[in-house]
Design a protein around this nucleic acid. Sequence first.
DNA 1: GATGAATGAGTCTTCATTCAT
DNA 2: GATGAATGAAGACTCATTCAT
Lengths: 199, 199, 199, 199
Amino acid sequence: MSPEQPPINLRKVPLQARAAATVDAVLEAAARILEEIGVEGVNTNLVAERAGVSVGSLYQYFPSKESIFAELIRRNRQVLITDIEAGIAETDAMGLEPTIEALLKAALRHQFDRPKLALALEYAEEVLPMGSEARALNTGFVDVVTSLLKANDIENPKDAARDIVALVKGIIDAAALEGEQDTDALLGRLKRVVIGYLP
Amino acid sequence: MSPEQPPINLRKVPLQARAAATVDAVLEAAARILEEIGVEGVNTNLVAERAGVSVGSLYQYFPSKESIFAELIRRNRQVLITDIEAGIAETDAMGLEPTIEALLKAALRHQFDRPKLALALEYAEEVLPMGSEARALNTGFVDVVTSLLKANDIENPKDAARDIVALVKGIIDAAALEGEQDTDALLGRLKRVVIGYLP
Amino acid sequence: MSPEQPPINLRKVPLQARAAATVDAVLEAAARILEEIGVEGVNTNLVAERAGVSVGSLYQYFPSKESIFAELIRRNRQVLITDIEAGIAETDAMGLEPTIEALLKAALRHQFDRPKLALALEYAEEVLPMGSEARALNTGFVDVVTSLLKANDIENPKDAARDIVALVKGIIDAAALEGEQDTDALLGRLKRVVIGYLP
Amino acid sequence: MSPEQPPINLRKVPLQARAAATVDAVLEAAARILEEIGVEGVNTNLVAERAGVSVGSLYQYFPSKESIFAELIRRNRQVLITDIEAGIAETDAMGLEPTIEALLKAALRHQFDRPKLALALEYAEEVLPMGSEARALNTGFVDVVTSLLKANDIENPKDAARDIVALVKGIIDAAALEGEQDTDALLGRLKRVVIGYLP
DNA sequence: GATGAATGAGTCTTCATTCAT
DNA sequence: GATGAATGAAGACTCATTCAT
């Protein structure tokens, strides 16, 4: 999952520092608009303006509006995936429960870092007509859990993984939406459901 | 919850049969587009065309594009709520578990009737800036569960209800999205998680 | 000017009492909207609704939206013309000044009766593409003054009449627009200008 | 009155020459349509087409149809105001009559330059719901006359100014509408009325 | 490379008018 | 005759994308 595929959504790999700065500025601007107004509020002109960049420059690096969302989603996911993989590595030999806890912690960190952005990106993923890449990444997350379950001889690991990812996402999203602050309590409840789900 | 509130989203209450037919045609057309293309694909001209109706007629009953979504959500929710209330009534004296099962069955029926529509409407709800009414109904669903839990002396019923609603929604959505067909197995898993969540 | 030409703008001469009532209701509704919202706010559906009549009925008597304005203007003008002619008749033998005073009084009465309506109708006349009839009536007003001036041996009576009508209208409109209440003072000033204009 | 206020009606200040050309083209196109068809005939698509520009470009600089009118009025008024101020300055020490004559000449020049446009803009001003700026300029014109009268110890200068502005406008408009060509004669009559109005 | 002006297809919405009941 | 549902042309405005400078 992690090896360096060239980012196929970017028009060109930003070689120079200035170019990378432009790309970052665009993405950050888009992220902020996503948080403030939502998916409907994102338009390339506004993004460019907020990024302090001309539309022309924006299109130098992003071939389409969708590609901005795609890259945002990709980077966002990458952070989570890396975090999760680190968690799994650390708890490797400690059995299922600690690993699950590490996983849940990573998910919580991720969602509560920029909750509105996380949510908006989820909607973006669903609503926007995006290429196969994004979906691939999405599945990839379930895959991590699947192999974890397999390694622990859980039966029907695929469905179980899908269920678990879905329910964790559901609970965290709902909690974030309502502004829940106590992530420790939330973690406790999540652990209970997930452990309870497994036989 | 169920008595005849006037449909505040409609511009005028359709008096004649022809008018009611127009309203229904518009809603069904919108639903189909939602299923086929998604929220972004819905535009008033297309809806009118598919409904076999002129744009003018559409706007005679729906003051805005959003109001179409709102009414769709309204009706969709009404069906679910009614179904759920019936399930609760039927299992009234039978304890928590049968009631939960009835509830889950209703939710499954609802989601698997027109899965794509159900999902699309959920996104629509989130993305669209809709009035308080829709939200009220939304909360109302959590409320039903909350009082159910309260009646069974579950502690912290509000958070628990929110979690349960969220996780059930999450699992069902994910399953529906991937085309899972075996709703009995799904129901089994759902029962296990929900019962497991409660002490 | 006054003999009973059939009102060529009306689709049919309202023979029955009910028909006349409908016509009146439509005109009054249009007048009120004109006062409240202005020319841009008048639309046939709204007029019909306010008149307590169906659009269909409205079109039974008025072949077009413009015809409503036309009839409104025509009736409004008729009142003024009648009033003016009465004033001229009364002051017939008394010389120019009393006649002018009578004329000015009529104009003031007319404008201050329903000032917003009077103004709105003036704009309507200008802005809307109306037939020759309305213009004819318009000119007719200048004609009355022209013959008055001619009868009093004023030289260049046509230009003078046009100037006088224009300046009186200008002053009264401006005063009405600013909500001037003291019509006596206004009359005094008007008399001074008009008399001053004549040699 | 005259220093460089930023043109608050424009969406953005045209930076490049091309942009300024677009703005001018749009305004000139709107002016011509106003002359040919009138206020009702102005629609953004037509304006853009006649300006040889895309609708998008039009909206790049004008946030709304109304803003086109507003800017047209603005510029039109600016010319008149400047002309009037020059006239007042030139006749400063020469007493009331020459100043009035200068004022009237400016008004005539202004109205007879593009008579239909001048008239159409007046209607536009009345019919359109425009911001305070336009009104301010409008009042400003009466103000110039007011202070002129005050400086010459005319009593009740405010009402007098309003009357004079109104009557001059009325006469000039009517004359222009009927295609009067002899502006010298018109000037003569105007002088007579205005001087006659003052004690 | 960068800029930002320009483009125009695409959307929402209104409203004068017609017509089936 | 009356009703009000239906029509659809027309008009305001947006925004992804291109291209001259």
